[in-house]
Design a protein around this nucleic acid. Structure first.
Length: 434
RNA sequence: GGAGGGGUGGCAGAGUGGUCGAAUGCAUCGGUCUUGAAAACCGACGUGCCGCAAGGUACCGGGGGUUCGAAUCCCUCCCCCUCCGCCA
């Protein structure tokens, strides 16, 4: 949610955000400004009537106490008249306020000035490419790296068919070394985050409507979530939602910032409309595991925090020896709530393509204002919204895909990076270590 | 799921129809005193909205109602606690 005062002062920047993010009709801004004016007018008249009503009632009190009913009678008549006026004004003020609030939820965050304007994948800027793609030339000219789904099947790591039988497509079972690899990666990512100063936290896997509104999934993007309608709950699409809402309606002292959390959770996404090679194997699932990093920071520090958070995620990729590239996402690819976003993509040798494994964003005050997460700049000062950030650190399935594809050997086994051995208990997939 | 009790400011805790946005204590902040600190004393100390400001207005879990007037009475929803049932 944007600051209404900001919209009044910079309507052009909000129109521009609507356009460059393709988040709606720029004229929404003008509708908002009209509702805003109406609301303020209605509210002012309402307050005037309320004031007169309060004054009258205050006069009646002592008279009634003294038993002077007859003297109170004309005042009571006057206040009854004011009351009917009040009812109408109340209705007007309320409907104007509701209309404005709804519009406020429909206006996207304004991109940071460093964000490139664009609408297509090509408009995202490849900021850096780190590490080198695996070199299979030593395996002979005939060697063709396999996609991960073939490796997974060969070693019985992931059972897609039984997952489809038991739950549906996109809900695989992990088996044997596959399951152990999942558990090891989760542990590895969490340990790394704690080492980087994050506090480990285990959130609920369902959220209520207010939480969905707080982080921006509701309204309008509910369709991405599985809903337990009878109980008014949603399965979390990411730990960002419960962890950010952990501090909903709270006020921090400036000295207590920044606050950083790391959470492992499964994530549930309906992914309606996906198809083709994008959903093959582990590329896109309805349920997947992820370690999420969330930070609450002072507004002056949020862009430094964004780079630091990004580095925390990149460190995991370094340790896993996975080649990756860092993308600065353009306005059109950025999403409704973000002010600036980086994506990290790993190279997947068997598929010959880049796979997104992390998305690191600064939301500035956008979520904080929705969720009423504030800080006090000085002791005794008026609370202000703080800045929230989050990033994946990291999402598992595509990491597994890349580890399998990049680590494959001519004999069909897969070598895992050194950093992982103590977590998995094995260095190679497809042959049991002693 | 059934029965009962309860939700008041950062915390504790008064207030059961009329200057109550709310006593008091603790915590916090500023000051006096002190070589320094503690103690003591003095003062400040919730949030939203409208307004340049003065000020106004709303909020005592959420919503609705009764009344000239509601933290206080009524209805309803949510949450917490106790007991019973069920249960990992």
């Amino acid at each position: 949610m944007l600051d209404p005062a900001f919209i009044r002062q910079h309507p052009d920047r909000v129109r521009e955000a609507l356009r460059t993010k393709r988040a709606g009709d720029p004229s929404l801004v003008d509708t908002f400004l009209a509702r805003d004016a109406e609301r303020r007018e209605a509210q002012t008249s309402l307050q005037e009537v309320q004031q007169r009503l309060n004054e009258t009632s205050r006069q009646i009190g002592p008279l009634m106490k003294a038993g002077k009913r007859d003297e109170a009678a004309p005042l009571i008549a006057a206040s009854n008249a004011l009351k009917s006026q009040k009812k109408d004004l109340e209705e007007a003020a309320r409907s104007a306020d509701e209309a404005q609030q709804r519009l406020l939820l429909d206006l996207p965050n304004v991109p940071h000035e460093s964000v490139p304007v664009g609408f297509a994948d090509e408009d995202n800027v490849v900021v850096a490419e780190i590490g080198s793609k695996p070199d299979f030339s030593a395996f002979g000219e005939d060697f063709e790296p396999l996609p991960h789904w073939e490796l997974a099947e060969r070693h019985g790591l992931v059972d897609f068919e039984r997952g489809a039988k038991v739950a549906g497509a996109g809900f695989p079972f992990y088996v044997g070394q596959g399951a152990r690899l999942q558990r090891g990666l989760i542990q590895f990512f969490l340990d790394l985050a704690v080492e980087h100063g994050y506090t480990e936290i285990q959130p609920p896997l369902v959220i209520n409507e207010a939480s969905g509104i707080g982080t921006g999934q509701i309204p309008d993007k509910e369709a991405m979530m599985y809903e337990a309608e009878r109980d008014g709950l949603f399965l979390i699409p990411t730990a960002e939602v419960p962890v950010t809402n952990f501090h909903r309606d709270e006020i921090f002292e400036a000295a207590s910032l920044p606050v950083a959390y790391a959470a492992y959770t499964p994530c549930f996404r309906r992914e309606a409309g996906s198809y083709g090679k994008d959903v093959r194997g582990l590329n896109r699932l309805h349920q997947f595991d992820k370690v999420e990093l969330v930070q609450f920071v002072h507004p002056d520090a949020s862009y430094d925090a964004l780079e630091a958070l990004r580095q925390d995620a990149e460190r995991a990729l370094d340790l896993l020896e996975l080649p990756f590239r860092r993308l600065l996402m353009c306005t059109g690819d950025m999403g409704f709530t973000q002010a600036k976003k980086y994506d990290l993509e790993v190279w997947s040798a068997g598929q010959g393509r880049w796979l997104e494994v992390s998305s690191v964003s600064n939301f500035e005050a956008f979520q904080a204002r929705r969720a009423m997460i504030r800080y006090r700049p000085e002791p005794g000062a008026k609370p202000e919204p703080l800045h929230t950030l989050n990033g994946s650190g990291l999402a598992l399935p595509r990491i597994v895909a890349a580890l399998l594809e990049n680590g494959q050997q001519p004999d069909g086994t897969v070598h895992l990076p050194e950093a992982l051995h103590r977590y998995t208990g094995f260095a190679t997939i497809g042959q049991l270590d002693v």
